[in-house]
């Protein structure tokens, strides 16, 4: 993919509370700042972290610190840890050019458990995301994480996929350095493995 030409670049990361989207926004924010970008991040904390729909707005500028929320319809790239949440973000920030990257591993809502709501048909959901995106990428990062023995690294696999797309001004080396600086040695190693799997998944043509 080509680098996004935007001022600012609007990246949205979404998911379900507890999936770890905040770690991703922090790693990205710190790495970009080191490269001289002015980054603003707006995100959901507090009660929504208890299983609710969460999102981080990351706004990347070379000129000024923007406000932490993206205008409606103005996302360049949506990375989502859950497919329903991709659709939710598309409804708010989507446009015909937007690229989406989705961990296609549905997390049922509690209203679905109680039969109050119906989780959308998976194929229909995928189709809708595809239709509403300029380009849509799907992978099952949760399955990859379980295979690696730890579902907690799903988010970092998605980070790898994001880096693999090469759409924001960050390289693999930038994020690797940030991971090494942010974690203890053993946790860094696990996260670097996760990152590599995400990058490889994109390279293999997800």
């Amino acid at each position: 993919m080509t680098r996004i030409n935007g001022e600012p670049i609007n990246l949205v990361i979404s998911g379900v509370g507890g999936q770890g989207n905040i770690l991703l926004s922090r790693l990205i924010g710190r790495s970009l700042l080191k490269k001289g970008y002015l980054v603003s991040i707006g995100e959901t904390l507090g009660v929504a972290q208890r299983g609710g729909a969460v999102m981080s707005n990351i706004r990347i500028s070379e000129k000024m610190p923007f406000g932490p929320l993206t205008p409606e319809g103005k996302a360049h790239l949506i990375v989502s840890l859950e497919p329903l949440e991709t659709l939710r973000m598309l409804s708010r920030y989507g446009n015909p050019e937007v690229t989406t990257l989705t961990n296609f591993r549905p997390t049922l809502t509690v209203d679905v458990l109680t039969r109050k709501d119906k989780y959308p048909d998976y194929a229909a959901l995928k189709q809708a995301i595809d239709t509403l995106s300029g380009t849509a990428f799907f992978l099952d990062a949760t399955a990859m994480a379980l295979k690696l023995g730890n579902p907690i690294i799903t988010n970092v696999i998605m980070m790898g996929a994001l880096i693999g797309l090469d759409m924001i001004p960050l390289t693999r080396e930038d994020i690797e350095a940030e991971i090494k600086a942010s974690f203890s040695a053993d946790r860094a190693e696990l996260n670097l493995t996760a990152l590599a799997h995400g990058i490889d998944a994109i390279a293999a043509g997800t």
């Binding site: 509370g17 299983g51 609710g52 409804s91 209203d111 679905v112 709501d117 959901l125």
Partner: peptide, 10 residues
């Protein structure tokens, strides 16, 4: 057709 609410939960 597809979007449902995701409420918070314990």
């Amino acid at each position: 057709k597809l979007l449902i609410n995701r409420g918070v939960a314990w």
